[in-house]
Amino acid sequence: MSTRETAPRPLRKDAERNRRRVLEAAREVFAEHGLAASLDDIARHAGVGVGTVYRRFPDKEQLIDALFEERVGEMVELARASQAVEDPWAGLEQFLTAAQELQATDRGLKEVLLGDVHERARVTAARDRIAPLVQQLLDRAQEAGAVRRDVSFTDLPLSQFAIGGLADYTRDIAPDAWRRMLVLVLDGLRATGTDATPMPAAPVDQEDLERVMQAAGHADRRRRG
Protein backbone atom coordinates (compact mmCIF):
# COMPACT_ATOMS: atom_id res chain seq x y z
CA MET A 1 0.00 0.00 0.00
CA SER A 2 1.42 3.39 -0.95
CA THR A 3 2.19 6.25 1.43
CA ARG A 4 -0.48 8.25 -0.31
CA GLU A 5 -3.07 5.58 0.44
CA THR A 6 -2.13 5.24 4.12
CA ALA A 7 -1.60 8.91 4.99
CA PRO A 8 -4.42 10.36 7.14
CA ARG A 9 -6.73 12.61 5.20
CA PRO A 10 -6.40 16.24 6.37
CA LEU A 11 -9.42 17.75 8.07
CA ARG A 12 -11.58 20.16 6.14
CA LYS A 13 -11.10 23.78 7.17
CA ASP A 14 -14.40 23.89 9.04
CA ALA A 15 -13.66 20.58 10.77
CA GLU A 16 -10.22 21.76 11.86
CA ARG A 17 -11.74 25.03 13.06
CA ASN A 18 -14.25 23.10 15.17
CA ARG A 19 -11.46 20.87 16.54
CA ARG A 20 -9.45 23.90 17.64
CA ARG A 21 -12.59 25.45 19.14
CA VAL A 22 -13.24 22.28 21.13
CA LEU A 23 -9.64 22.14 22.39
CA GLU A 24 -9.68 25.79 23.44
CA ALA A 25 -13.02 25.35 25.20
CA ALA A 26 -11.70 22.22 26.93
CA ARG A 27 -8.62 24.10 28.11
CA GLU A 28 -10.80 26.82 29.67
CA VAL A 29 -13.38 24.44 31.17
CA PHE A 30 -10.81 22.03 32.62
CA ALA A 31 -8.81 24.96 34.00
CA GLU A 32 -11.88 26.24 35.86
CA HIS A 33 -13.59 23.00 36.89
CA GLY A 34 -10.93 20.30 36.64
CA LEU A 35 -11.23 17.00 34.81
CA ALA A 36 -14.69 16.43 36.32
CA ALA A 37 -16.13 18.61 33.54
CA SER A 38 -18.11 16.65 30.94
CA LEU A 39 -18.01 16.68 27.15
CA ASP A 40 -21.46 18.32 27.31
CA ASP A 41 -19.93 21.15 29.36
CA ILE A 42 -17.16 21.56 26.80
CA ALA A 43 -19.55 21.50 23.81
CA ARG A 44 -21.72 24.14 25.46
CA HIS A 45 -18.70 26.35 26.18
CA ALA A 46 -17.42 25.90 22.61
CA GLY A 47 -20.81 26.75 21.13
CA VAL A 48 -21.00 23.49 19.16
CA GLY A 49 -23.19 20.42 19.37
CA VAL A 50 -21.97 17.58 21.55
CA GLY A 51 -21.92 15.40 18.43
CA THR A 52 -19.18 17.64 17.04
CA VAL A 53 -17.10 16.98 20.12
CA TYR A 54 -17.61 13.20 19.90
CA ARG A 55 -16.65 13.14 16.21
CA ARG A 56 -13.29 14.68 17.02
CA PHE A 57 -12.79 12.97 20.40
CA PRO A 58 -14.84 9.76 20.90
CA ASP A 59 -14.29 9.87 24.66
CA LYS A 60 -13.04 12.37 27.23
CA GLU A 61 -9.79 10.51 27.87
CA GLN A 62 -8.69 11.10 24.26
CA LEU A 63 -9.50 14.80 24.62
CA ILE A 64 -7.50 15.02 27.86
CA ASP A 65 -4.60 13.18 26.22
CA ALA A 66 -4.53 15.53 23.23
CA LEU A 67 -4.87 18.69 25.31
CA PHE A 68 -2.55 18.01 28.20
CA GLU A 69 0.32 16.42 26.29
CA GLU A 70 1.00 19.96 25.10
CA ARG A 71 0.41 21.51 28.54
CA VAL A 72 2.77 19.06 30.26
CA GLY A 73 5.28 19.78 27.51
CA GLU A 74 5.20 23.40 28.67
CA MET A 75 6.27 22.20 32.11
CA VAL A 76 9.19 20.32 30.54
CA GLU A 77 10.35 23.50 28.84
CA LEU A 78 9.95 25.38 32.12
CA ALA A 79 12.23 22.86 33.86
CA ARG A 80 14.82 23.18 31.10
CA ALA A 81 14.74 26.97 31.30
CA SER A 82 15.23 26.74 35.08
CA GLN A 83 18.27 24.51 34.57
CA ALA A 84 19.80 27.32 32.52
CA VAL A 85 19.67 29.69 35.51
CA GLU A 86 23.23 30.06 36.81
CA ASP A 87 22.39 30.09 40.53
CA PRO A 88 21.22 26.59 41.57
CA TRP A 89 18.82 27.83 44.26
CA ALA A 90 17.33 30.47 41.96
CA GLY A 91 16.79 27.82 39.26
CA LEU A 92 14.95 25.47 41.61
CA GLU A 93 12.92 28.30 43.10
CA GLN A 94 12.00 29.57 39.63
CA PHE A 95 10.71 26.16 38.57
CA LEU A 96 8.74 25.44 41.76
CA THR A 97 7.15 28.89 41.76
CA ALA A 98 6.22 28.89 38.08
CA ALA A 99 4.93 25.30 38.24
CA GLN A 100 2.75 26.15 41.24
CA GLU A 101 1.40 29.25 39.48
CA LEU A 102 0.35 27.18 36.47
CA GLN A 103 -1.35 24.60 38.67
CA ALA A 104 -3.10 27.24 40.78
CA THR A 105 -4.76 28.69 37.67
CA ASP A 106 -5.44 25.38 35.90
CA ARG A 107 -7.17 22.67 37.93
CA GLY A 108 -7.03 20.24 35.03
CA LEU A 109 -3.27 20.60 34.70
CA LYS A 110 -2.84 20.05 38.44
CA GLU A 111 -4.89 16.86 38.29
CA VAL A 112 -2.91 15.59 35.30
CA LEU A 113 0.48 16.35 36.90
CA LEU A 114 -0.34 14.98 40.35
CA GLY A 115 -3.02 12.40 39.60
CA ASP A 116 -3.25 8.92 38.12
CA VAL A 117 -2.78 9.18 34.32
CA HIS A 118 -1.85 5.58 33.52
CA GLU A 119 -4.60 5.33 30.89
CA ARG A 120 -3.32 8.42 29.03
CA ALA A 121 -0.20 7.23 27.25
CA ARG A 122 0.83 10.53 25.67
CA VAL A 123 0.35 12.50 28.88
CA THR A 124 2.18 9.85 30.90
CA ALA A 125 5.13 9.94 28.50
CA ALA A 126 5.25 13.73 28.66
CA ARG A 127 5.01 13.76 32.47
CA ASP A 128 7.78 11.18 32.78
CA ARG A 129 10.09 13.63 30.99
CA ILE A 130 9.70 16.15 33.82
CA ALA A 131 10.89 14.03 36.75
CA PRO A 132 14.59 13.64 35.77
CA LEU A 133 14.82 17.36 34.98
CA VAL A 134 13.45 18.31 38.39
CA GLN A 135 15.71 15.74 40.07
CA GLN A 136 18.66 17.44 38.39
CA LEU A 137 17.49 20.84 39.65
CA LEU A 138 17.27 19.47 43.19
CA ASP A 139 20.64 17.67 42.98
CA ARG A 140 22.36 20.80 41.71
CA ALA A 141 20.91 22.93 44.53
CA GLN A 142 21.90 20.36 47.17
CA GLU A 143 25.43 20.03 45.78
CA ALA A 144 25.73 23.83 45.99
CA GLY A 145 24.72 23.69 49.66
CA ALA A 146 21.54 25.69 49.01
CA VAL A 147 19.01 22.96 49.89
CA ARG A 148 18.85 20.68 52.92
CA ARG A 149 20.58 17.36 52.27
CA ASP A 150 17.67 15.41 53.78
CA VAL A 151 15.18 16.71 51.20
CA SER A 152 14.06 13.96 48.82
CA PHE A 153 12.75 14.38 45.28
CA THR A 154 9.38 12.98 46.36
CA ASP A 155 9.02 15.82 48.88
CA LEU A 156 8.52 18.21 45.95
CA PRO A 157 5.35 16.71 44.39
CA LEU A 158 3.92 16.10 47.86
CA SER A 159 4.38 19.78 48.68
CA GLN A 160 2.62 20.59 45.41
CA PHE A 161 -0.27 18.37 46.51
CA ALA A 162 -0.58 20.36 49.73
CA ILE A 163 -0.31 23.81 48.15
CA GLY A 164 -2.54 22.82 45.22
CA GLY A 165 -5.26 21.63 47.58
CA LEU A 166 -5.07 24.93 49.44
CA ALA A 167 -5.33 26.83 46.15
CA ASP A 168 -8.50 24.91 45.27
CA TYR A 169 -10.20 25.66 48.59
CA THR A 170 -9.20 29.34 48.74
CA ARG A 171 -9.66 30.14 45.04
CA ASP A 172 -12.82 32.22 45.54
CA ILE A 173 -12.00 33.52 49.02
CA ALA A 174 -8.29 34.34 49.21
CA PRO A 175 -6.85 33.50 45.78
CA ASP A 176 -3.26 34.35 46.75
CA ALA A 177 -3.20 32.40 50.02
CA TRP A 178 -1.26 29.58 48.36
CA ARG A 179 1.60 31.99 47.69
CA ARG A 180 2.18 32.39 51.44
CA MET A 181 2.35 28.62 51.83
CA LEU A 182 4.78 28.38 48.93
CA VAL A 183 7.13 30.85 50.66
CA LEU A 184 7.00 28.73 53.83
CA VAL A 185 7.76 25.58 51.81
CA LEU A 186 10.64 27.23 49.97
CA ASP A 187 12.11 28.49 53.24
CA GLY A 188 11.77 24.98 54.62
CA LEU A 189 13.81 23.58 51.73
CA ARG A 190 16.70 25.98 52.25
CA ALA A 191 19.89 24.95 53.94
CA THR A 192 20.62 27.36 56.80
CA GLY A 193 23.63 28.19 58.92
CA THR A 194 21.95 26.68 61.98
CA ASP A 195 20.96 23.10 62.61
CA ALA A 196 17.69 22.24 60.89
CA THR A 197 14.91 20.48 62.75
CA PRO A 198 15.35 16.75 62.11
CA MET A 199 12.81 15.18 59.79
CA PRO A 200 10.20 13.30 61.86
CA ALA A 201 9.72 10.59 59.21
CA ALA A 202 11.53 9.03 56.28
CA PRO A 203 10.77 10.40 52.81
CA VAL A 204 8.07 8.74 50.74
CA ASP A 205 9.68 6.47 48.16
CA GLN A 206 8.82 6.48 44.44
CA GLU A 207 6.51 3.47 44.73
CA ASP A 208 4.48 5.09 47.50
CA LEU A 209 4.39 8.37 45.56
CA GLU A 210 2.82 6.50 42.64
CA ARG A 211 0.25 5.04 45.04
CA VAL A 212 -0.56 8.54 46.29
CA MET A 213 -1.07 9.71 42.70
CA GLN A 214 -3.32 6.72 41.99
CA ALA A 215 -5.38 7.47 45.09
CA ALA A 216 -5.73 11.09 43.97
CA GLY A 217 -6.84 9.94 40.53
CA HIS A 218 -9.41 7.55 42.01
CA ALA A 219 -10.75 10.32 44.23
CA ASP A 220 -11.10 12.62 41.22
CA ARG A 221 -12.97 9.96 39.27
CA ARG A 222 -15.36 9.33 42.18
CA ARG A 223 -15.96 13.06 42.44
CA ARG A 224 -16.87 13.35 38.79
CA GLY A 225 -19.06 10.24 38.90
Rank of each mutant, 00 (worst) to 15 (best):
M75G: 05
Q94Y: 05
D106K: 05
E111Q: 15
A79M: 08
G115D: 11
G91T: 01
I130M: 03
E111H: 10
Q136P: 04
Q83T: 13
L96K: 09
S82Q: 08
A84P: 09
E74R: 15
A84K: 13
A126N: 14
G108E: 07
P88V: 00
F68M: 08
V123R: 13
D106Q: 12
I130K: 01
E70W: 10
L109V: 04
R120M: 13
L133Q: 12
L138G: 00
P132M: 05
F68D: 06
V123N: 10
H118T: 15
L92T: 02
A90C: 06
W89F: 07
G108L: 08
L78P: 10
E74T: 11
A121T: 13
V72Q: 08
T124R: 15
E69L: 10
A144P: 12
G145K: 07
G108T: 07
H118L: 11
D106P: 15
D128R: 09
G73R: 10
M75H: 12
A90L: 09
L109M: 10
R80C: 09
W89D: 00
L92K: 00
P132F: 09
L92N: 00
E74W: 08
E119I: 00
D87Y: 03
A126G: 11
L109C: 11
R122L: 15
E70H: 13
I130L: 07
A121V: 14
L138D: 02
A99S: 15
D139I: 03
E74C: 08
G108A: 06
Q142M: 03
I130H: 04
L96G: 04
P88K: 02
